[in-house]
Amino acid sequence: MTQGKTGTELAEPPKKPVTVSINGNAYRADEGECLLTVAERVKIPIPHFCFEQSLEPYGACRLCMVGVVHHGKTVMETACTLRAKEGLTVLTDTPDIVKYRTILFELYLAEAPKSAVVKEMAARYGVTKTRFLRRVDTGDPLGGACILCGLCVRVCNEIMGAGAINFINRGPYTVVNTPFTEPSRDCYGCGACAAVCPTHAVSLEDRGGERILHSWSETKVPLSQCVSCGKYFAPAALEKSVLSRIEPPLRDDLEGLCPACRAKKLAKKEILAATGGDPGDA
């Protein structure tokens, strides 16, 4: 734990290769690598909902619990928060894990009865029924498919920096939505929330010149129209935010163009440069 005084000045040290054991087989991994990533790479299935490579491990869905064998004792830990180190020995299907995972899947089936993803994943682990009372909420903007893994909240806050949605209430009353369930002024309309949602619960649609985020209090964001072809192609606020991070010559080239027209324009420019200004057969 103690670092040398020059520790912070050094470049990131090369990753040390280590051997970890999963279900009795040895695998190579980098020291400190997330065990869930290692298992995914070597195609050992460990169920999970709340894990995403680009975000810090969150440890909330509890499905990725594995048994860590240490001095003959097996302790359960979440694979997403486990770090690879030499000699790490884990088991993914101990009787305890199977027992608890079954109950967790049943809880998810009751919490998000409308989610096909949850049903499919649970079925893969032999759970097709739940003994718990199913949640019924006909007005749920997430269509009865949200399992509160928090990925949408984290991606909106930590990666997009928008902070348009967050958790509301606590305990079993927790929901995700915009503040005061009013249309958000902070939302870029980027749709990252929908992209990361493991249960495809987030509903949004592009209608005319607007993107409507049905799940987030019907937040509406204007879309930019391509100056060349007239197609709506991206949320205006997102376009502005992205363009602000690009250097002027390129920015001026790209501004107002949809991806297809952008490609055309850039290609044309390259060809013009290569052929010395003669468009030729291009």
Binding site: R62, L107, L148, G171
Partner: peptide
């Protein structure tokens, strides 16, 4: 149940069903 923060499923949903 009322004091659970709602982050993880066993506590959030499990306690609710225990109460039921």
């Amino acid at each position: 149940t009322g004091e659970s923060c709602g982050k993880c499923v066993p506590c959030r949903e499990g306690l609710r069903h225990t109460l039921i």
